[in-house]
Nucleic acid binder design. Structure first.
Length: 681
RNA sequence: GGCGAGGUAGCUCAGUUGGUUAGAGCAUCGGAUUCAUAACCCGAAGGUCAGGAGUUCAAAUCUCCUUCUCGCUACCA
C-alpha cells in the first residue's frame, strides 16, 4: 500500500458485443472507472483508460446464426452502438478498441505462444460432441437437448435457461446440433489447459498481498481457492471457428477461450493507443494496474488473468480490482431477455442532455458494497432535491445576484471577516476530502462531499444575506459575492469527474477556462473584474409524469412477458413406435419419502410399482414436501438403468409434467381403479 | 448442503484497531426567510444496530447458534 507509482493503467471490463449498454453496466464499472480516471487526469497524473468490445465467444455466433448474418456483422453493430453510448455519457476512454482487430489477434496469439513455449499448458484429450454433417466440434451452446431436470427440450449444453441448472453437454437427453440438426457424436479432441490447480499456491500468495481489496472481491476469490478441491485446470482453447486461432500445429479449427482472449484485449488496446511506449504501462513496476469490473467477472480478472500474467512473466499484476455488485431495477434483476432494463440509447431519447442526471443518480446509488436498486422515483428525487435544489440552486442564486448587483462582473474581495476566513478554509479543504474518497474507490462518499460544497455555498448565502446587506453595506457584499463566485468556480472543478457535462456548462457560465484539480484548493480563481456570462439553469426539474411514463414502460414490458402464453416447446424429432414401446412405464404409489441429506432438490422415495417396491431418487423437493406425498400415486419408468445419486441407487424415474417455468407436477390416472403396476402406453 | 457477501432510522447508505447520549443524505413535522427552479437556511422527531446466547469494566463492532436476501457451487435420469 505504501508503494508509490509513476503512472496508472485503468481498465474497464470489456463489454460483450451482443447487446446495447444499460444502466447496470454503467453503474457497475464504467462510471466508477470514469470518475477515477477523470479525477486522476485533473490532478495531472499519468493515467490511461482502456476499454473495448469483447467480440468473440459462442453467444455471438449463435446470435449471428439466428439473425442470418455473420458474427462480424453482429459485433460491428454492437461495437458501434456501445461505443456511441459510452461517448454520449462521457465515459472518457483513451481508447475503445475491439478484440476482433488485427492487433488483438496478434497480441493474443503471441501471448498464447509464450505460455505454450514455456510449457505452462497441460494438454488434455477429451471427448466432445462433433457434428458429422457440419464437420466441426460443437461448443456447449451449439448443442440443444432435453434438460434432464425440467424436461425443457431446448436446454443448451451448458445451461438450461428454463430452470437455470448448469449442465454438461453430455447431460442432455437427445442432444441435437443447432448447426445441422443432426445428432452429434462424441469424438476425441485435444485442448490446452491452464493448470490452475498447480498455480494455486502462487495465486494464494498474490492474494495474500492484497487483503486490502474490497470485501466482496477478496471474499469471492477466497471462496474459489478454499472451496472443495480448490482451483481446477481450465481449458484455454475451444473447438470453434470464431475467435483467435490457436497458434499451434495441429490445432486447426480451434480458437482461444474467450476468457483467455478478452483480458489480453486490454493489452492490445494499449498497444493500439501507444504503439511506441505501451510496455511502460504493462511491464514497468512503477505502473499501477487497476481493473474495474462487475462482480460476475471477479474470478476471471483476479485469478485466471493474473495467473496468465504471472506465467508469462513479463507483465505487472493488478494492484486492485474494485468490483461492484449488481444494480437491480425497480425491485427486479435487470434482464435483457425480459427487456427489464434502462438502455442508455433509449434514455437519451427521453431525457435529452440529461446524461449527468443519470451519472449522478447511478453514482449516488452505486452498488459498491451490495446489490442496489434503481428506481425512477429515486432518480426524480435525486434530480429535484439534490441537483436542482442544492447544486443548481446555489449556482443560480450566485449568478443572478452577481448580475443584479454588478452586471456580471466579479467584485473584489475587500476585507474578509472571521466567518469568511472559516468558509474559505473549508472551501480549500474539499479537494483533499473528495480525493481521499475517490482514491479508496468510495465514489458515493466522494459524490456526497462534492454536494456538501454546494451546501456550504447555500449556507454561506443564507447567513450573509447579501440581498439584504446590499441596502446597508455595499462594500461587504462585494466580498460575500466574490466568495460565492469562488465556491461556484471550485464546484465546477471538483464536480467534473462525476458530472462532466455540468462542469463544462458551469465553466462556460462563469466564462472561465477549464481548471484543474489543484486550482480547487485556491480561493481566488476568479479575478476581480472578470465578466461572467448570462445566468442559465444547470438542471431542470423532472415532473412526476416523466418518471411515471418510465415506470409504465417497464410495467408494460413485464405485462407483455407474463401475459404471453407460457411458451410451449417445439416438438422433438420423430421417433419410432418401437423406441417408445421399449419404455416400461407403470403407475405406482409412494410409500415413503424423505429428504436426501445435504441436497436442496432431492427426495428419496420408496415406490410400490405393483411388481416390487423400489427406491427412487427424484429432484422434486422444491415442489413437494415429503410428508405430503406419502400415498401419492405416480407414473414411473421402471426399466431405466439404475443409477447412483448421492450414494443412493435410484431404480427408476418418476415422470413429471414441467411447465415453462420449470415447475413440476405428478402425472397420474384421473380414474380411481388403476392399481399399482398398470401400464402406461 | 458447502463457500462467499450482506441484514444499522420510512428510503439509500456511513460506522475506522470493541470505549461516553449510534451518524449522513432524502422523505416527514415545526420555525425562519425571499436572492433563488415553492428552491435555500435553522430545528425536531425517527433506530432493543435481523433474532438469541456468550466473552468483556465496555459489543453495531469479537465468538457461537438461528433466521432472511444475493452470488458461486453440489444434487435432478
Amino acid at each position: 500500500m505504501a508503494q508509490t507509482y509513476k503512472r496508472t493503467l485503468v481498465t474497464s471490463a470489456l463489454p460483450y458485443a451482443n447487446g446495447p449498454v444499460h444502466i447496470g453496466h454503467l453503474a457497475g464499472c464504467y462510471l466508477p472507472s470514469d470518475i477515477f480516471v477523470r479525477y486522476k487526469r485533473s490532478k495531472g497524473e499519468d493515467v490511461l483508460f482502456i476499454c473495448g468490445s469483447d467480440e468473440h465467444g459462442v453467444p455471438i455466433t449463435i446470435k449471428a446464426k439466428k439473425e442470418g448474418i455473420t458474427p462480424q456483422d453482429v459485433v460491428d453493430k454492437y461495437h458501434k452502438m456501445m461505443g456511441d453510448s459510452f461517448k454520449e455519457f462521457g465515459i472518457s476512454f483513451d481508447v475503445y478498441s475491439r478484440t476482433s482487430s488485427k492487433i488483438h489477434h496478434q497480441t493474443a496469439s503471441d501471448f498464447f505462444t509464450v505460455l505454450y513455449d514455456k510449457g505452462v499448458f497441460t494438454e488434455q484429450v477429451t471427448e466432445q460432441y462433433y457434428d458429422d454433417e457440419a464437420k466441426q466440434f460443437l461448443a456447449d451452446r451449439y448443442i440443444v437437448g432435453t434438460c434432464p431436470k425440467c424436461a425443457n427440450p431446448n436446454a443448451y449444453g451448458d445451461q438450461c435457461e428454463k430452470c437455470g441448472s448448469t449442465l454438461n453437454p453430455t447431460d442432455l437427453i437427445e442432444p441435437k446440433s443447432t448447426l445441422s440438426g443432426s445428432k452429434p457424436v462424441l469424438k476425441e479432441t485435444k485442448n490446452w489447459f491452464l493448470p490452475l490447480d498447480k498455480l494455486q499456491p502462487k495465486i494464494q500468495a498474490y492474494l495474500d498481498k492484497h487483503t486490502d481489496w474490497k470485501n466482496n472481491v477478496y471474499g469471492q476469490c477466497k471462496s474459489w481457492l478454499d472451496s472443495g478441491d480448490g482451483l481446477q485446470p481450465r481449458s484455454m482453447t475451444r473447438d470453434l471457428d470464431w475467435g483467435v486461432p490457436v497458434p499451434v500445429k495441429g490445432a486447426e479449427g480451434k480458437v482461444l477461450y474467450v476468457w483467455f482472449d478478452a483480458p489480453i484485449g486490454y493489452i492490445s488496446a494499449t498497444k493500439e493507443l501507444r504503439p511506441n511506449d505501451w510496455e511502460l504501462y504493462w511491464k514497468d513496476k512503477d505502473t499501477r494496474l487497476i481493473h474495474f469490473i462487475g462482480k460476475d467477472n471477479i474470478v476471471f480478472h483476479c485469478i485466471i488473468f493474473q495467473s496468465m500474467l504471472m506465467e508469462h512473466g513479463d507483465f505487472i499484476l493488478a494492484d486492485n480490482v474494485p468490483a461492484n455488485e449488481f444494480l437491480n431495477l425497480e425491485g427486479d434483476k435487470i434482464s435483457t431477455s425480459r427487456n427489464w432494463a434502462v438502455w442508455l440509447h433509449e434514455y437519451l431519447l427521453e431525457f435529452k442532455d440529461k446524461q449527468d442526471v443519470l451519472r449522478y443518480t447511478l453514482c449516488a446509488n452505486a452498488p459498491e458494497n451490495k446489490d442496489n436498486d434503481f428506481t425512477w422515483k429515486d432518480f426524480q428525487a435525486r434530480n429535484n432535491n439534490e441537483l436542482v435544489a442544492v447544486l443548481g440552486n446555489f449556482v443560480n442564486r450566485t449568478l443572478v445576484l452577481t448580475h443584479k448587483f454588478y452586471n456580471g462582473k466579479v467584485p473584489a474581495a475587500e476585507r474578509y471577516t472571521k466567518e469568511d476566513l472559516i468558509v474559505l478554509e473549508e472551501l480549500a479543504s474539499f479537494p483533499d476530502k473528495i480525493a481521499a474518497s475517490i482514491e479508496q474507490f468510495r465514489f458515493r462518499e466522494a459524490l456526497g462531499e462534492m454536494m456538501n460544497l454546494a451546501r456550504l455555498g447555500n449556507k454561506y448565502l443564507a447567513e450573509t444575506e447579501p440581498w439584504k446587506l446590499i441596502k446597508t453595506d455595499e462594500e461587504r457584499v462585494k466580498t460575500v459575492m466574490n466568495i460565492a463566485l469562488q465556491i461556484s468556480c471550485n464546484l465546477a472543478i471538483v464536480c467534473e469527474p462525476f458530472i462532466p457535462f455540468t462542469s463544462s456548462k458551469l465553466f462556460a457560465l462563469l466564462n472561465m477556462p477549464t481548471l484543474k484539480w489543484h486550482a480547487a484548493k485556491q480561493t481566488s480563481n476568479m479575478a476581480a473584474g472578470h465578466q461572467i456570462n448570462k445566468d442559465e439553469l444547470l438542471f431542470a426539474k423532472i415532473e412526476d409524469a416523466e418518471v411515471e411514463a418510465q415506470v409504465k414502460k417497464l410495467e408494460d414490458s413485464k405485462a407483455a412477458n407474463t401475459s404471453a402464453p407460457l411458451s410451449v416447446q417445439p416438438a422433438k424429432p420423430e421417433t419410432s413406435f418401437d423406441d417408445f414401446s421399449k419404455m416400461d412405464i407403470r403407475t405406482g404409489t409412494i410409500l415413503e419419502a424423505e429428504r436426501v441429506p445435504k441436497t436442496d432438490k432431492l427426495l428419496k422415495l420408496k415406490i410400490d410399482t405393483g411388481i416390487d417396491q423400489r427406491t427412487v431418487v427424484s429432484g422434486i423437493a422444491e415442489y413437494y414436501k415429503p410428508e405430503d406425498i406419502i400415498g401419492q400415486q405416480v407414473s414411473i419408468l421402471i426399466n431405466l438403468a439404475p443409477r447412483k445419486i448421492k450414494g443412493i441407487e435410484s431404480q427408476g424415474m418418476i415422470l413429471m409434467a414441467a411447465n415453462s417455468k420449470g415447475e413440476l407436477s405428478f402425472i397420474v390416472p384421473t380414474k380411481s381403479d388403476f392399481n399399482n403396476g398398470s401400464e402406461i402406453k
